[in-house]
Amino acid sequence: MSVTDLEPYTTEDGREIGSVVMEMKNITLRFGGVVAIKDISFDIRQGEIRAIIGPNGAGKSSMLNVISGFYTPSEGQVWYQGQPRPTMKPFEIARQGVARTFQNIALFEGMSTLDNIMTGRLTHMKSSIFSQGLWWGKAQREEAEHREVVEKVIDFLEIQNIRKTPVGRLPYGLKKRVELARALAAEPQILLLDEPMAGMNVEEKEDMSRFILDVNDEFGTTIALIEHDMGVVMDLSDRVVVMDYGKKIGDGTPDEVRNNQDVIDAYLGVAN
């Protein structure tokens, strides 16, 4: 089966992969004279796990930042749900259903785990500031309703016992999990994971992989992730984009990518 087909299909393990939901068209990103991303195009399909890999400094994080709207591409465009996405603020993009985690954990250290995950719901919360001030009617109901959604996420990621712990006190692995919980609580259309496995030991990596697969499987969430660890990525993802020096050098199923000469060269080095 070829991955360039745009028809929906079902994977071997029975997941539905739909049509293209987001497409990068000839993205170039420059900082002054430095070119971080050079003319890259690829797409993300509904329900798949899409990985972006590449050696250090390949421009993976910059790519993710373009997708989440933190950087505006110098050239090219991001298409989302069949429409070119106009230049907008990151918070507006988040409201369109794009949630993400961060390479260097970006939790709100002054809040409890529960409150951190509740912030994931804020794009769905609508009560006015006056109603909240009185803690009456809509505001109170809303708080309880969203708490229910958050509790489901908490159950799903098995972090019930740290619900009311300030996140500052949590160990690294748990912090990563809380961050995932916060992104999940937003019930995103596309979930972006920035090196979800960075700095973890084997056991934690296995846990995280399981959660990623479960999220994709149970909620059908489209996931785009950046990862260093080739092994993990190949096992997890449906399709992989490989970047090197800001350019795309490979795109396809894990098997295709594994056998791509350019990719092998980039990772192992070329004798010349």
Partner: peptide, 18 residues
């Protein structure tokens, strides 16, 4: 929560929709 998120890490706050 919106205020505290702004206080604790404004960049992350903006990226989650604030």
């Amino acid at each position: 929560r919106i205020w505290k998120a702004t206080r604790d890490m404004d960049i992350a706050a903006e990226l989650i929709g604030i």
